[in-house]
Design a protein around this nucleic acid. Sequence first.
DNA 1: TATGAATGAGTTTTCATTCAT
DNA 2: AATGAATGAAAACTCATTCAT
Lengths: 224, 224, 224, 224
Amino acid sequence: MTSSDERTFVGAFPIIPKQERAQQKRSALLESGRSLFIEKGYEQTTTKDIASHAGVATGTFYRYFSDKRQLLLSLLEDKLDKLMPPEPNWMHQNPEQLLASLLENYTKSLETMGIHRVLPELLPKDRELSMILLEARRKMHTRILSSLQQAKKAGLTWKDLDLDTVTWAIMIMVENSPEKTEHSGRQLDFLEMAKVICRLVFPPDIIRNLADIEGNKHAGAEDK
Amino acid sequence: MTSSDERTFVGAFPIIPKQERAQQKRSALLESGRSLFIEKGYEQTTTKDIASHAGVATGTFYRYFSDKRQLLLSLLEDKLDKLMPPEPNWMHQNPEQLLASLLENYTKSLETMGIHRVLPELLPKDRELSMILLEARRKMHTRILSSLQQAKKAGLTWKDLDLDTVTWAIMIMVENSPEKTEHSGRQLDFLEMAKVICRLVFPPDIIRNLADIEGNKHAGAEDK
Amino acid sequence: MTSSDERTFVGAFPIIPKQERAQQKRSALLESGRSLFIEKGYEQTTTKDIASHAGVATGTFYRYFSDKRQLLLSLLEDKLDKLMPPEPNWMHQNPEQLLASLLENYTKSLETMGIHRVLPELLPKDRELSMILLEARRKMHTRILSSLQQAKKAGLTWKDLDLDTVTWAIMIMVENSPEKTEHSGRQLDFLEMAKVICRLVFPPDIIRNLADIEGNKHAGAEDK
Amino acid sequence: MTSSDERTFVGAFPIIPKQERAQQKRSALLESGRSLFIEKGYEQTTTKDIASHAGVATGTFYRYFSDKRQLLLSLLEDKLDKLMPPEPNWMHQNPEQLLASLLENYTKSLETMGIHRVLPELLPKDRELSMILLEARRKMHTRILSSLQQAKKAGLTWKDLDLDTVTWAIMIMVENSPEKTEHSGRQLDFLEMAKVICRLVFPPDIIRNLADIEGNKHAGAEDK
DNA sequence: TATGAATGAGTTTTCATTCAT
DNA sequence: AATGAATGAAAACTCATTCAT
């Protein structure tokens, strides 16, 4: 800070733009909030905690966020979109492996953000937050469901299962996957989960067919 | 109270015992705590809230519970055992219907108590509570798993799915079932969920066989 | 009294009169209050403590005393008079021994009642109590002072000491004597204290004379 | 605050350092605590009282002290050492006057702090506090006693009084002196008390000798 | 009278938020 | 902009006192 003058001396180096420094602080606060929320829970984390963890004064917090809650919402806003999985194309890949890697990615980003641990504490008291989450969930539900419906049209799925229910099952498995993988071997778990989820969607013989096609494609590719 | 006159008529019935009234008050507090916890969350509910919702003074709360947390623990203690499902016997019934009814019962008692909504909020900050719940979960996991293993030995299950993962999937579906059924038609939902869960365990043809046997039994019974 | 008629009925065994039982309860409460006040201090003692220590219900306390404070006042009222020492006659006894025994008695009754330990806590907040005690002190001061003044008239005391100050010194020594004797050998202490106090009043040669006269009297008595 | 403009005039004086203002606030709280404790007693004084008496909000209290008790301990810590009297040298001064001035100083500082009024209330319930005070008392007792023992070796004291008891008597007189002087003329009282105390230690003729020597010294000094 | 459950004002303490510097 | 001291509302909990039985 005192060194901004010195810099003009040094010449070449441009002063760090104010905005950028501000952004750094904002990020530091976000990150501090995130990690403290995860570590101690939302209520148990004080704004003072967050500020000092981010290396700024209590008051500074309020320059960047209107209040503690807003920090949390920002945290969510940032990441919620990233969680939306890409529309999977069941035909073009071994579904189990596709799903396993989707799962792994999802779990990892969920784990990286970690906020999912804080939400349960807040949902009851924060209607807006609930809405946001509900909305995100709905989106995801819709996307999964439509993907399943396409698969059904293509005759790939069980005929006797309610797709809505299957979608729901997939969603909660996905959402709860961090909890499961937390305690045990990684890679393998994702594959097992993927297999389980696939079983809800595709009859085993279909999977075999899809996998074969896939295998052939690769084989063909390798042939060249 | 209104019945005191009647009692003199009836003669037999003595004065309402003190203990009973105390129990009533305790129950009222428990019930108020439960519903407020569900409505507003644990942290957001003050002892004062609970007391006045139960129609008593703040101090009275502390006659019956040492503090808010203890009320919650009492709430749990009461109900945790009731949630343990009976060991299902897959051979003797149509598994889907068996499961549907198990699910319905479970969901109903979970819904009745409702505390499952509060727990996520508390787990991070209350190690003891975490332990209690973790223990309950472990028990349930074990029970489900062993039931699946028996089914596997009997050649009833998919051969390629990891039973532990399947157990996990079942558990989270069961645990989240109230959330699902909350928004939609009841009865049907349970059956759909049961079908989904069954698909994770039994190949469809097995189910058909089991259902047939079952059907025959009944048919036989009806024949007589 | 009302029961005198009943007695004749019941025959030999007299029913304990109601008043008497009431008095017993009152006494039990007083005694419980006293000992708990001494043990834990006034503020730290709850009326519930007192009642249950006395073996009665909380509410019963209030039948016998209007409140906690009044119990304390009763405690004082009972005993304050007993502390007033008899007017000592310095001529007729060895003053040191006279004083030692006065001291011992005083200390013992002070110790027996023990309330002197509670008073300091209360004086700041209870003007009336302060007044009562101040009054008692004044009385005692006056009595000691007048006794010293008589001795002075008789030419027995130091001529250069201010009797009021001496009186004050005596009083605080007396009041603090329990604290002193608490930690050490008993009997002896009283004599040492008595000697110290006497030194404040009488020149040593006067004491010797008084002791001699006393000795002679006894000797004379023994001669017969 | 209003003086900030003046300062720019005066030039030399920098802004009031934050630390200093914090210290002022801390001192204000200490002083408010002290005076309220004395006025209403410790228990009767709430932290809110102290804060508003010091002109700050409740919460501010807790920035400076962890709780009420800690404020009291700080009060004590500050002053306890100041009460330790200097080792008196009986030979080099008229003992009565020496003592009178010691007494006056002691009483004044005791009176200034005033906490001695609160202590009796707290001793029963605060073991740590008791220990601190007991320790201070022991130190003082030891110091007085050793000073008396030296005087005894020099043949200056009564031969027949127990020095320990005399020490005790002196201590309680000293401790209670504020109470005495509170109601009456100042200066004189201290001298009278000093005389009384001296009488416990020195035979009158010794005092006269000491005073004479002292007088001569001064006379000699004046001669030059 | 006796009981002890019930009351609720009052206390300590915390912490999100504001504000003077 | 940044600071961190100050604020004060709100929560948990206690206990003298009342009151229905």
